[in-house]
Design a protein around this nucleic acid. Sequence first.
DNA 1: CCCGCTTGTTGGCCGCGCGCCAACTAAGCC
DNA 2: GGCTTAGTTGGCGCGCGGCCAACAAGCGGG
Lengths: 214, 214
Amino acid sequence: MSVPAEGPRWQRLEHDERRRQILHVARRLFSERNYASVSTAEIAREAGIARGLLHHYFGTKRELYLEVIREIVRVPSSPVPRPGPGRGLEQVISEGADRWLTLLERNRGAWLAATGGQGPGRDPEVEAILEDGREGAADRLIAALPGIAEPAPDDLRALIRCFSALAEAASVEWLQRGRLTRAQAHALIVTGFLSLVQDVLPAVRRATAPASSR
Amino acid sequence: MSVPAEGPRWQRLEHDERRRQILHVARRLFSERNYASVSTAEIAREAGIARGLLHHYFGTKRELYLEVIREIVRVPSSPVPRPGPGRGLEQVISEGADRWLTLLERNRGAWLAATGGQGPGRDPEVEAILEDGREGAADRLIAALPGIAEPAPDDLRALIRCFSALAEAASVEWLQRGRLTRAQAHALIVTGFLSLVQDVLPAVRRATAPASSR
DNA sequence: CCCGCTTGTTGGCCGCGCGCCAACTAAGCC
DNA sequence: GGCTTAGTTGGCGCGCGGCCAACAAGCGGG
């Protein structure tokens, strides 16, 4: 009836290219809506492919989601500047906090989505991916600390992890709730870090051996 | 064949009683596993009722879940002891931290699930419920602070919120990762709070008016 | 004491979304 | 140009949640 319109009905892409395309669409959808309300059918439709192809590439909707999370987490990978032996610790942390806040300002949507635990949540795998990212950040922070033993003892790692939580909370207060200005969030992060390392860490170590002294 | 076993095939309960029973079972299941992997059929089976009854009482699986979250959040409503004008601030906070940690120890599963954002995630409603709980905790903490203006300025609320994040992170390090002992977590929370109020808060306020002084 | 009413409760129907697989075909190669 | 490879399609099956009409347990009036 109409023009025959010869030519292939669909295009055949390179494996990696198709994979990246699907991942791109999925990332966009998962960023604007939560896991449950995004269907594989919708992802396929938006990507212009059949639903079964998702399974071929990622096996499971869940697997696809994990891949998206990994991609998002991979982004903020340089919040801490060079160790800087010459500059003071405060200076280093201050610059690191600046970079961190700027990074968040740029990736606002993606970051809020990722840290908000948008997925099935409390899922060991999702948690592991996010934790990997945070542990990496902690490693980079610890590397900036002068005079710290290499193996990085558990209590220090835990403390840094608590600091990360503090910094994230301060960022949320700034970006989302608006109860802090950027300058205030910056001050909170910097002085918070210094207080944690100088005052809190010794107290934690004092609590290690002795039972509750009360 | 067997004894006729006369009598009703099922028991008819008071509205509130049945509701509490279902809620109890749901809370247990949602605490041990995440939202998606708990089916309404399983909840009904464990509660010894028909699946349709869930809908009668809660309308939706999601609604039931929200109710569970509300219940869980409502529990930790007295982590902070009396303001205690006689006792020192440190003493008050120390006792509060103790109660908090004991509470978590008991409700371990449920708390980890709730704070982990186990549900559909980044859901405005779930987030709102959890935030209400945290804001309430912040209010109670602020009430324990001596010499604080009543309206509780934004920067203080934000700081307390950051402290909550710190305390939660320390709790996770203790309960889940095992990188802190209970005594260490306790010390971290107490000295962390004191440092935040005494050192960090002034710094944040200093950052309010002037531009970045660096 | 029995009947009828209220309402807590049941069981099943329906649609949707995901996992999976066999057939199809676009693109490369001899 | 036919053969081979593997990217792609379309549909089947199942499980799960939303929903509803019928059923019955317990209570109160006659």
